[in-house]
Amino acid sequence: MSTEAMNWAMDDAPMPRTEKGKPDTTGRHVLQALAEHARSDGSNSHPSVLRIQYRTGYDRTTVQRALRRLESAGLIKQDGTVDSRKRWRLAMHLVRPESDWADLEREENDFRAAAAERKRRSRSKGVTHAESVTVTDSKGVTVTDAESVTGDVTDFAPSRHALNASPSRTERRPNHQQPSVNQLPKDSCEPAAHESDVGKPSLFDEQAASVELTEEQQQNIDFAAFYAAYPRKVGKGNARKAFAAAVKRGAKSADLVAASAAHRDNWARCRTEMRFIPHPATWLNGERYDDELPAPSALRATGTGGYEGPWTEPEDPSDYDGDL
């Protein structure tokens, strides 16, 4: 395995495109599998289709189509055969344009600006300013001016209203305890207020506002679930940015969490080494969450620590070339 070829396939190689113009993440994954078997100059890469299936988890038809797309894009070229297997040369002279990174940064900045604007609007909607509040009970108590309860108070009952003033020290009982509820004046509907409580908002005047999560808070929760499910914990900051960029492109955060768990289970079934599992940011930027994964029933244990699919090697090795 060549480090130069792997770095080129993962970071520097141009992003292949599908017929619809979308990033071909499946083809890029197959290109990385070819780079693992190439020399430092990108030559002499001849893994079998079965080996690529084992490495990527794709079925045979998906691998063959990806190879044809890579060859049409000029990223690989056949230069012979080795043991009836096609030998490929990687076009390592092709480099991904710098505009790809600039576009991602611009999308990230636009997303952050939009998130900040949504947060500002959400805060502005949650603040209300009441200039006056009128509270009237059965005895005709009226309070004007919400910021001060020292305004006009009218009480038509002959006895002093409990909201008007607190009991004086001479009116306290000998044991200095507050009177019970039954001992309050008949016309009062609330317990007596202390002088220090005058001017403070009452809990009976307004209901507690319901707590609603903003989009940014919900996205942070979903990212935490995604990062917990993803098996390789590397570059959490870059992963967070890539997660936000994926949501900006239209992916649902809940789908990203489910896809990371599905890929984790697939890597576990295929016994994929940790060093071959992409970083979470690379997985997100490559839109690997849209990759086709084989069904669990398509893999069975061989008894030697690995897995193989239902396909068996043909008697005629030329079948490798005929299908590609």
Rank of each mutant, 00 (worst) to 15 (best):
Ser2Lys: 04
Glu4Phe: 02
Met10Phe: 02
Ala13Gly: 07
Met15His: 04
Lys22Gln: 09
Pro23His: 05
Glu36Lys: 09
Arg39Cys: 03
Ile52Thr: 06
Ile52Arg: 02
Arg55Asp: 11
Asp59Arg: 12
Gln64Met: 05
Arg65Val: 01
Ala73Arg: 03
Gln78Leu: 04
Thr81Tyr: 02
Val82Tyr: 10
Asp83Trp: 03
Asp83Ser: 13
Lys86Ser: 06
Leu90Gly: 00
Ser99Tyr: 00
Asp100Asn: 08
Glu108Arg: 12
Arg112Glu: 15
Ala114Pro: 00
Ala116Met: 05
Lys119Val: 13
Arg121Tyr: 03
Arg121Ile: 03
Val133Lys: 02
Ser138Pro: 04
Lys139Leu: 07
Val143Glu: 13
Val143Trp: 08
Thr144Ile: 03
Ala146Met: 13
Val149Phe: 15
Val149Ser: 15
Gly151Lys: 08
Asp152Gln: 14
Ala157Arg: 14
Arg160Phe: 01
Ala165Pro: 01
Ser166Phe: 03
Pro174His: 14
Gln178Thr: 12
Pro179Cys: 02
Gln183Ser: 09
Pro185Arg: 03
Pro185Thr: 06
Asp187Val: 09
Ser188Asn: 14
Pro191Gln: 15
Ala193Phe: 06
Ala193Ile: 15
His194Lys: 09
Glu195Gly: 10
Gly199Gln: 05
Lys200Val: 08
Ala209Val: 13
Ser210Ala: 11
Val211Ile: 13
Glu216Asp: 12
Phe226Met: 06
Pro231Trp: 08
Arg232Trp: 00
Ala246Arg: 07
Val247Leu: 02
Arg249Lys: 12
Ser253Gln: 05
Leu256Gly: 01
Ser260His: 03
His263Gly: 03
Asn266Ser: 12
Ala268Asp: 07
Arg269Phe: 01
Cys270Ile: 08
Thr272Glu: 08
Met274Glu: 12
Arg275Asp: 06
Ile277Phe: 03
Ala281Trp: 07
Asn285Val: 14
Gly286Thr: 09
Arg288Pro: 00
Leu293Arg: 12
Pro296Glu: 07
Ser297Trp: 10
Gly303Gln: 13
Thr304Gln: 13
Gly305Ser: 11
Gly309Cys: 11
Glu313Ile: 06
Glu315Asn: 07
Pro317Ile: 13
Asp321Glu: 08
